[in-house]
Simulated assay, not measured.
Amino acid sequence: MKRSSYLKEIRGLASVEMTIIVPILMIIMVGIFELTQIIQANNIIISISREGANLISRNTTQTPEQVMNTVASTADPLDLEADGIIYVNLVYGRAEGEAPQLLEQYRWASYGYSANSSTWNGCDTWGSDGECDLPESEPELSDFPLELDEGEAVYVVEVIYRYSPISTYIFDSDITIKELTYL
């Protein structure tokens, strides 16, 4: 008799333990899954930015829009057309002590996420080809992180992506992944 009640008590205790442990394990598993998805998205954004800078800096036949379309097509499984934007900036160095100038800025025409460029976000009018209609005097970039010699030019490719984790069904918060490549 004692053994039978003892076994029932142990089974009851095991079911209580499972009721407590399973939700905790599920939360941990979802967290690990979400973290790996974010890491994968970040790696893809880094690759797109680097490849975009590589292509735009050595390519004279393709327009910046064509380069952005090319690198965006490699974003699978991310959907850049729904949740991403790409900028290509050409920055030119001036005499020592003077801030570099922005010579050209392009925004990807198929963008689905509206975010400002961190290189320069003062463009009011965009052309049909994605080129910014810059003011007559090119903007000076006083907070540009690189020191450029006079006459030196650098392309800055920015890829910005809005990642919506599974937890957005519970908490209303997206994660913005941004990568800049200077080449």
Rank of each mutant, 00 (worst) to 15 (best):
Q62G: 00
G12N: 06
Q66A: 10
A41E: 01
N59S: 09
V16F: 14
G52S: 12
I32Q: 07
T74R: 05
V30S: 12
V91N: 03
A75E: 07
R11D: 03
L13H: 04
S73Q: 09
G52A: 11
Y6G: 01
V67N: 03
Y87C: 14
N54D: 15
S5A: 00
D76V: 08
Y6N: 03
N42H: 00
L78Q: 05
R58I: 03
Y87P: 15
G84A: 09
T74E: 03
I46S: 05
L90N: 12
N43W: 05
T61E: 00
T60M: 06
T74D: 05
A82T: 14
V16C: 09
I46Y: 09
I39C: 04
K8A: 05
Y6C: 03
N59M: 08
S15H: 09
S4G: 02
I38H: 04
R3E: 02
R11C: 02
T63E: 02
R50N: 14
G12K: 10
M68F: 13
M29H: 09
L78G: 07
P23N: 13
G12E: 06
I39G: 01
Q66M: 01
Y87K: 14
S73R: 08
E9D: 05
T36W: 05
R58H: 06
L35A: 02
L7C: 02
T61N: 01
I27M: 15
E17T: 11
D79W: 12
K8S: 04
T19V: 12
E9M: 10
N54Y: 15
Q66Y: 03
A14I: 10
M68R: 13
A53R: 11
A53Q: 12
L55M: 14
I28M: 15
R58W: 01
T70H: 06
L7D: 00
I45V: 15
E51A: 07
L25M: 14
I85Q: 13
V22A: 10
A53P: 10
L13D: 05
Y6F: 08
G31F: 11
T74L: 08
G12R: 07
I48D: 03
P64T: 03
A75T: 11
I27R: 11
V22E: 01
M29F: 11
S4V: 01
A75V: 08
S4R: 05
L13A: 15
I21N: 02
M18T: 08
S73F: 06
T63W: 00
I32A: 12
I28T: 12
N69Q: 06
I21H: 02
E51S: 07
N43D: 03
I28W: 10
L55R: 13
V71K: 14
T60C: 00
S57Y: 00
Q66L: 07
L7M: 03
T36K: 11
D79S: 15
T63C: 04
A41F: 04
Y6M: 06
I38P: 06
I21D: 03
A14V: 10
D76W: 11
T70G: 02
T60N: 03
R11V: 02
E34F: 09
N89Y: 07
E9T: 11
I20F: 01
I86M: 10
A82C: 13
G52W: 12
P64K: 06
A72T: 14
G12I: 04
L13F: 12
R50C: 07
I85S: 13
